[in-house]
Every structure is written in C-alpha cells, then in structure tokens.
C-alpha cells in the first residue's frame, strides 16, 4: 500500500476522532456518573470537577447480591457462547462441505430462525420452561440464547470454512487422518478468526440480552442487566447505582472482546496452496 499523504492522514484521524467522541461519550457519562455524589448528579451544567465517591459501588454490592447476578450473566453468556460456537461450527462445516444444490436453502433456513421477533415467542418459552421446571435457571437462558446464536454462528463460520482450501483436507486424508482429526487439527485452526468473531457476537448478544432474561428468570437466575434495572422502581430511580452497575457490566464484555481479538488475524492460509 502507498504511504498515505498528510491530507489523507488528517481526514482519517478526524473521522476517527468524531467516531470516538460519539461512541465514548455515553461510556464517559456512565463512568463519571457512577462516581458522582448523588446530590450533584443532575446539576446543570454537569459538574466536571468533584470529589469522586465509591458509595454507589458499595451500595450496589451491599443492597443486592450483585456479584451473584454477574456470575449468572457470565454463566449464561459463556455457556451459550460455548454451546453455540461448538454446534454452530459443526453444522457450518457440514453445510460448507456437502455439495448439494439445495444446501444454500438449508443455510438460509437456519439463518431465518434468527429473524423471529423475540416478543412473539417469549410467552411460549415461559410456558415451556415452566412446564419442564427450567424457569428461573441459567439453562433456560442458555437454550434461548443459543437458538439465536447458533444460526448466526452457522452463517459466519460457513464463510470461514469456505475459505479453507479443501486441498489441505485432502492432504490430511492421504496423510492418514480421519474426518474428526482433519476437522480438529487442520480446518478449525485455519478458521480460528471465524471462531473469534462468532464468539464475540454470541457473547455480546447473550450478555446484553434483556427481554428473555427479564421474563424467564426470578431471584435465582437473574442476570446483571435485569438486576441493574431493578434499581429503577416506581418510587425512586437510583441513578448512581444504575450507573455503577452499568459500568461493571461493561467490563466483562470488553475483556472478552480483547481476549478474542488476538485470534482475529488474516492470511492464515498463506503458503499452503499458493
């Protein structure tokens, strides 16, 4: 690539700066409000300089078992991510490799399952889980989130598997390896960026999901976003705690994305088949 000119550089950095401001402002507001003493929370113009306090965080963990809700969220999000990425990858592999003229239709059919409006199915889910005794358990949420995450993973991973040259799998077959060994040691490592992308999408969707979590859980399996909203009651809205809770919720997502990022490398198949 050519070295960008100064003008190009200025343009790029200006756009980046604007994007940064747009995306970071809410996060700044959450972070600053979470350490702002309640009395000056809604001062106008907003107080920029104040004595930070950790009161909201203390309240957050003292008044309700917020640590447990974070744990629930983690369990549900990681569980659904693992489940979806595993089964989604296997399905995607089959769709990518089986040559059949209707295979694209199968792929689309799977993706279409992600298109239903959640509100339409939340009541049936409620009834089903109540009947089988899974209401208010992390398993219920793992199942529900996976029904949304698996189609997405299938769709994403199919694209990545399509990019892995079949010649490599044939080489492995002639080298004496069976299907599972080939998939595990040749194909999947070369589709690792796809795994990372899928995992990020699955995790973030499960971590942020609100509607199902609200309807299908109670005090036992409640997730962090629902717990945060419970500080919004009819008589009082405890903004400080909501902000503190929101900020805590941000952290695992950021950590997870940064962890996955190191797998997002390009050109993994370079040097294999020219």
């Amino acid at each position: 690539m050519n070295k960008p000119s100064t003008q190009q550089a200025i343009l790029v950095y200006t756009l980046l700066g604007i994007a940064l401001i747009v995306f970071m402002t809410p996060i700044y507001l959450i972070a600053s409000s979470s350490v702002k003493p309640s009395p000056i929370m809604f001062q106008k113009p907003p107080a920029m300089i104040f004595e930070p306090t950790l009161d909201h965080y203390r309240d957050l963990f003292a008044m309700r078992p917020f640590g447990k809700f974070i744990g629930n969220s983690l369990m549900v999000a990681l569980g659904s991510t693992a489940f979806s990425v595993f089964f989604g990858s296997i399905a995607a592999y089959a769709i990518s490799r089986i040559k059949h003229k209707r295979m694209n239709d199968v792929a689309f059919w799977i993706l279409s399952m992600r298109m239903f409006p959640p509100i339409a199915v939340v009541v049936p889910y409620y009834i089903i889980f109540k009947t089988v005794g899974l209401l208010d358990t992390p398993i219920a949420l793992i199942i529900v989130y996976s029904t949304a995450n698996i189609p997405l993973t299938v769709w994403l991973m199919k694209g990545f598997f399509d990019e892995v040259p079949t010649a490599l799998e044939e080489a492995a077959a002639v080298d004496g390896h069976g299907l599972i060994s080939i998939f595990w040691k040749v194909t999947l490592p070369l589709a690792a960026p796809g795994l990372a992308v899928s995992a990020v999408f699955c995790f973030i969707f499960s971590w942020n999901e609100f509607l199902f979590a609200l309807m299908l859980t109670g005090s036992n399996a409640q997730t962090a976003p629902v717990a945060v909203m419970s500080f919004w009651s009819s008589d009082a809205v405890q903004w400080g705690r909501i902000m503190a809770g929101s900020f805590v919720i941000l952290i695992p997502g950021v950590v997870f994305v940064l962890t996955c990022q190191r797998w997002l490398v390009r050109g993994l198949t370079m040097g294999s088949v020219k």
Binding site: P165, A167, L168, E170, A171, A172, V186, L190, L268, T269, M270, G271, S272, V273, K274
Partner: peptide, 8 residues
C-alpha cells in the same frame, strides 16, 4: 499435490 497443500 500440484499445489503442495502444506499445512500453513
């Protein structure tokens, strides 16, 4: 193989 098909 013609294109070698080495595991990259």
């Amino acid at each position: 193989f013609q294109n070698y098909a080495l595991y990259p």
